[in-house]
Nucleic acid binder design. Structure first.
Lengths: 111, 111
DNA sequence: CGATGTACATAGAATTTCTATGTATAGGAA
DNA sequence: TTCCTATACATAGAAATTCTATGTACATCG
């Protein structure tokens, strides 16, 4: 997979995943990995800074939680503002697809 | 339009446009602008460096041309290697769309 | 008791794209 | 004629995103 094209989808997908239910970072990474059949494999160095940025922007909130095993996790919830941002990003994504596909189709068969 | 998502599509679209016919930089920018009904407006500071990079990588070749009016333009042609790269990038784009839409759909209706 | 998996984090590098600026000419408007 | 706009290319530096590499720490399984 061309990693160049992946850029910008991270935020969209994090918000989409958190709209299902609250998740912690590691869970987000493994969920997107399995949901995309391994097409997306986010590095921790990309994911955690993105989560911090989304939290700083008020789109998600994180709370420390302790599992039965005594392990600590930071569970993120999407905020109302986060849901608005998700809606907007989804619309942008739809527009982007349409615009790119329009150019590709116009090229098709020519030359 | 969310400019974050646009990243990575520049190379794909330049190659796609040049697969139609040879074009010069300014023409590429105005064509993509009109083809996408203004959804994409590449800055010259993004376009020209990208063209130089594609040329350095052997995916396109540029030749200076002079118009009747005496104006100079650099007309770019796609190379065989450029066509291969275009095919590959188009496949990646299709995969990316599928993967992202799969995640978005799985989130739909939940929570 | 060591390896692996879980779980978070940051520093620095690499890459992409944008902003700002510069040069130069053609053609129409004032 | 002179100025403004559109055409046409270019680069330097900044900003943003993502990756690589590294570090910490604990649980569990073999």
């Amino acid at each position: 997979m061309d990693t160049e094209l992946l850029k910008g989808t991270l935020t969209l997908l994090i918000l989409s995943l958190l709209s299902r239910k609250p998740m912690y970072g590691y869970e987000i990474a493994s969920t997107v990995h399995s949901d995309t059949s391994g097409a997306f494999t986010w590095r921790e160095g990309s994911l955690y800074p993105s989560l911090h940025k989304l939290e700083a922007n008020g789109l998600i909130t994180g709370e420390w939680e302790e599992t039965d095993g005594g392990r600590k996790r930071k569970v993120y919830h999407i905020t109302p503002r986060g849901r608005e941002a998700l809606d907007e990003k989804q619309r942008s994504w739809t527009e982007l697809q349409a615009a790119v596909n329009c150019v590709l189709e116009k090229s098709h068969g020519q030359a």
